[in-house]
Design a protein around this nucleic acid. Structure first.
Lengths: 353, 353
DNA sequence: CAGCTCGATTTTATCGATAAAATCGATCGC
DNA sequence: GCGATCGATTTTATCGATAAAATCGAGCTG
């Protein structure tokens, strides 16, 4: 009858409660509770006695009971977004994993839910909060005029967004809530500077239509690096920049357009790995460098150079900020802007000439 | 002071409880509870009165209180695995999303946790169960000699695995628990038969080393389809089959080997999209067809033909089976074997000759 | 019409924890 | 040496729901 896991109690059939531990240690129920929640109040000797009683009986507090009394669940809610193209979805996947792990380490759990729109998501918030199912939220994919952040702020719910708040027009806005984000401009700037250092001069940018915040930032990083290092005029820069929606097909088309234009680039910096993969197929065997963004598994698989986001770091920062909100009653918002890192692979060789 | 969400109550500050609803409807607390949990016991007129009181006050039951009393959480636990190559991870991602959505529809929630090994996962089970944090589990990535299923069965915990139970030797085994799986052999058979119908005869298989269960099944489907339709001898079939670990690089190497061998194949069926992408690069511009497995987003992006698993269906079946276990006290195990579907794209053209 | 059944509802007890107040010695200052 | 102080512990009250038992009245039966 030896069990594989230690502390495998409960042969008697009835649950081990504070009460039974208290009896075993010959103290009151409350003292056992104090041992767990406020050990400084307990005399060392008692502390030890209770601890061993807990260990012997394999006691684990019933979370529902604690939750009922404290009105806290120690659970973090997170919306699981539909898998879009799934290429970039991999970033959120890693984020989710890292956040879950981090939360687990900190005594929290992550609970998922799905929603079909921002409004739907807000309705879920409302439900989860009303039933005290979660204490806080982590938001992803913030975007212009996001109604979620303002709703949560208004309700005074602790939350952190992975992604900065954007205004309707795609500019950064200060809504005063906590966020963690990756410096997109810094990423494309690093990519562009690397290509410059490899002898490239005509470096194009392949990105999304203006107004998306994230996309604009990525373009801006490229633009700044290039205008600082070269003599290209503003209008030439515009000619070196293509815009299209995020997919491999569109990336291929737009890249082909860039290659056929007046200023034929020798390198292309892309706003996403999807676009970059499209660009790769347009480039075919020609010596044109391509760099993607997000360093998704596909990039690694195909040998695509790409800008990697420090996702694990982002997750632990999110949790840290969240803990700050959960501890304090006042809402002091804080931010973290993380540096991405360029991962150089086969697709970004030095310039030919 | 009008709010955006309907039923935005609680201006008073205090929580809406069964008690307050009862007072409003001029009935007892228990009757309100009955309205929610056993409406057949309540007279239609009373039912209606209580219902409108609930609506007016925007009442939502506090889950922790219910959970404390019923010892049920209506939460399903699920281990979030580390993102392996992330290409195939996309399948689990979709599964997780579908399961969460399905559970939500059925009044359940999904809670995540991470673990570093099977033993670690079992320790998490133990903890989650001891604290009554979850009612049931959904397992993924079952494998030979899986200790998790036997532990859960021994403890009498409701669970369903996405993936069949395998013995240590990689054969199917009957451990008597509920599972949902996709018929792998059927998938590769469909792929092979399609290639045959397109005029291909020398169709190779690129898969994983023997002993992995899933991998063996996928090879078997190919073998059966081919030996039924062609005159290849058993030894020739062996020569047409390559084995390597699951990665793009290894796939490229092994595919190159196949192409250089005596029976040069005109088509290659692969055990995964990773291998298939590797094969694609080995094939380069030559007219050799390639089919992958799992229909991951990368496959769609690259125009790779691939065998798609009905992941959403698998998720809803898992939840359905789980509900069966959660309802009944007896443990009647049930299974579902789902048919995958071949998605034909550019990489599987008709045979050249 | 007494007694019984039965549907509808209320009363009582309980789930397992924590907060807040009360208790109880021992120590300390003056 | 007496009240104040303080640390350690216990007592009491409560969180919000549901299960099980009790009640109560209407309708039925013989």
């Amino acid at each position: 009858m030896s069990d594989d896991t230690q502390g495998e109690q409960d042969t008697s059939g009835s649950r081990v409660t504070l009460e039974s531990v208290a009896k075993r240690a010959a103290v009151s129920r409350q003292t056992v509770s104090n041992v767990l929640n406020a050990p400084h109040r307990v005399r060392p000797m008692t502390l030890q006695r209770v601890h061993s009683a807990i260990a012997e009986l394999g006691y684990r507090p019933l979370l529902a009971a604690r939750q009922l009394r404290t009105q806290r669940s120690r659970i973090i809610g997170l919306r699981l977004e539909p898998v879009r193209d799934g290429i970039n979805g991999a970033v959120l996947d890693r984020f989710l994993h890292a956040l879950t792990e981090e939360a687990q380490r900190g005594g929290y759990r992550t609970m998922l839910f799905t929603a079909h729109s921002d409004e739907d998501e807000i309705a879920r918030y409302s439900e989860l909060l009303a039933t005290t199912s979660v204490d806080a939220f982590v938001l992803t994919s913030t975007h212009g005029g996001d109604p979620r952040t303002s709703w949560l702020t208004r309700q005074g719910v602790p939350f952190v967004s992975f992604g900065r708040p954007w205004s309707d027009t795609g500019r950064l806005s200060d809504t005063g809530h906590s966020w963690v984000d990756v410096d997109n401009a810094q990423g494309t700037r690093a990519a562009t500077e690397y290509l410059l250092s490899q002898g490239h001069r005509r470096i194009a940018f392949l990105g999304w239509p203006a107004g998306s915040g994230v996309g604009d930032e990525r373009r801006e990083g490229w633009r700044r690096a290039l205008s600082k290092a070269t003599a290209w005029s503003a209008s030439t820069l515009v000619a070196l920049s293509a815009e299209t929606t995020d997919s491999v097909e569109h990336g291929a088309e737009a890249a082909a357009g860039l290659l056929a234009a007046k200023y034929r680039p020798t390198a292309i910096v892309c706003a996403s790995d999807s676009l970059a993969i499209g660009a790769l197929s347009a480039v075919a065997a020609e010596p044109v460098a391509v760099v993607g963004f997000d360093d998704t598994p596909v990039a690694a698989a195909l040998g695509l150079s790409s800008v990697a986001q420090p996702v694990e770091r982002a997750a632990s920062d999110c949790f840290e900020l969240l803990l700050g909100h959960l501890g304090a009653t006042s809402a002091i918002s804080a931010n973290r802007l993380l540096k991405p890192e360029l991962v150089v692979r086969r697709t970004s060789p030095a310039a030919a000439g």
